[in-house]
């Protein structure tokens, strides 16, 4: 069976094809489109999705050596995200479904991330713990099956990826913030700066807003402004921030491992690209003897492979959807407990 996945919930347009459990192609606009087609600097716009989606589909079919009419199932992100952006991929998918007379499966973007470990050769085993960390989301969940997800906690303010971006900006390191913080932190010999970790009512929730403000206060107090920070001390601040942010994530993971019966732990989403977080997460798995699944980098950021992958689960569960199914900008999932 050939499954087409389409993702357009925010900045990236992505098209992927999975054939009988084998991923044939996973094209992401910012990485592939601009490289292969030249074109403008990516901007946040529904028009950008509109311009990219057809060429991406053509290229995906070519790379998969398939004709359009050989696609058996069409899936697209239905939310959450920016409604104007979602609509482009979603309506395009519905249109294909109608004209090809093949079933259409709307997919929740977050569920796509949650099950993205199944795109790997070594797959998670139920029940597993999953930490979703991206620019827009920070969630800790126990996944009991393909249709049962228990939410333990989420961020009460900023997402983890957002904290990395904003602290990078405060330090004058530029964009994107995640890789910059990691790069600078790696050059530190270990700093003595201590930033606080928030203590929250729900032991599985996260908060990054206070950490962001602590870094800001520290810069103001010690240097006045970021341009006055000597380079070596930038390394130390980046290291101290990264250590604290990662600790606040892994602390909750460790609490969950101690409280729930789990067979695997999985780290997903764009911030899962951070190598310090990957290392610390892997160490926790070793410490508690849990199988660790962290998807390859191409499945961490927003991508359509995870959408097609989740659509396959839903198809196998026997789920069917009418073409009048509507997309949702806010979070909605019937599989969350």
């Amino acid at each position: 069976m050939n499954i087409l996945g389409i993702e357009s919930s925010c900045d990236e347009t992505s098209v992927a094809i999975i054939s009988d459990d084998v991923l044939k192609t996973n094209l992401v606009s910012s990485q592939d489109f601009h490289k292969k087609f030249g074109g403008v600097v990516p901007e946040l716009s529904s028009r950008a999705h509109l311009q990219q989606i057809v060429p991406l589909l053509r290229l995906a079919l070519k790379e998969s050596k398939l004709e359009l009419n050989e696609i058996d199932l069409i899936s697209a992100t239905a939310g959450p995200g920016l409604i104007g952006a979602i609509l482009v991929g979603f309506i395009f998918g519905k249109g294909l479904s109608y004209s090809l007379k093949k079933p259409f499966i709307p997919v929740n973007h977050i569920e796509g991330h949650i099950y993205s470990g199944f795109l790997m050769k070594e797959k998670p085993e139920f029940p597993f713990l999953v930490l979703v960390v991206s620019g827009g989301h920070t969630l800790l969940l126990v996944v009991e099956s393909f249709s049962r997800i228990k939410k333990l906690g989420s961020t009460i303010d900023d997402a983890a990826g957002e904290a990395f971006d904003k602290v990078a900006k405060m330090l004058g390191l530029g964009y994107p913030g995640g890789p910059k913080i990691q790069e600078y932190a790696e050059k530190s010999n270990g700093s003595k700066i201590v930033f606080p970790i928030a203590q929250l009512k729900n032991e599985f929730d996260f908060s990054f807003s206070g950490l962001k403000t602590s870094v800001l206060r520290f810069i103001q107090k010690e240097y006045g402004e970021s341009s006055a920070i000597p380079e070596k001390e930038l390394f130390d601040i980046a290291e101290a921030f990264q250590k604290t942010a990662v600790k606040s994530l892994t602390r909750n993971v460790e609490r969950a491992i101690n409280k729930y019966q789990l067979n695997s732990i999985s780290l997903v989403g764009g911030v899962a690209a951070n190598s310090f977080l990957r290392d610390e997460f892997t160490l926790l798995g070793k410490k508690y003897n849990k199988k660790v699944v962290i998807p390859d980098l191409q499945f961490c950021g927003d991508n359509a492979a995870m959408i097609a992958n989740r659509a396959k689960n839903l198809f196998d569960l026997g789920e069917t959807f009418d073409l009048d199914y509507e997309p949702f900008p806010s979070f909605f999932s019937k599989y969350f407990q």
């Binding site: 925010c10 995200g81 920016l82 989420s154 961020t155 303010d157 997402a159 900008p329």
Partner: peptide, 13 residues
Amino acid sequence: VSSPTFAIVNEYN
């Protein structure tokens, strides 16, 4: 309510 920085807009109903 959480930060809308990444999503640009959050809708609460």
